[in-house]
Amino acid sequence: MNMLVYLIPIALSLGALGLFAFLWSLKSGQYDDLDGAAWRAIEDDDDHPAV
């Protein structure tokens, strides 16, 4: 029973952490261009011409 005093806040704050991480990523525009992000990941970001 005493463990609950620690465990419940820990469980809730972990969940809240996930929630805030999601809200933050939404706000910072990470879902604005999902198709583009998929492509950018495999782009070579160097000075050589692409293709």
């Binding site: 583009g36 692409a50 293709v51």
Partner: peptide, 11 residues
């Protein structure tokens, strides 16, 4: 429609 389009246009 693809990654090459992104690079081409941005470059």
């Amino acid at each position: 429609h693809c990654g090459a389009c992104i690079t081409t246009i941005e470059k």
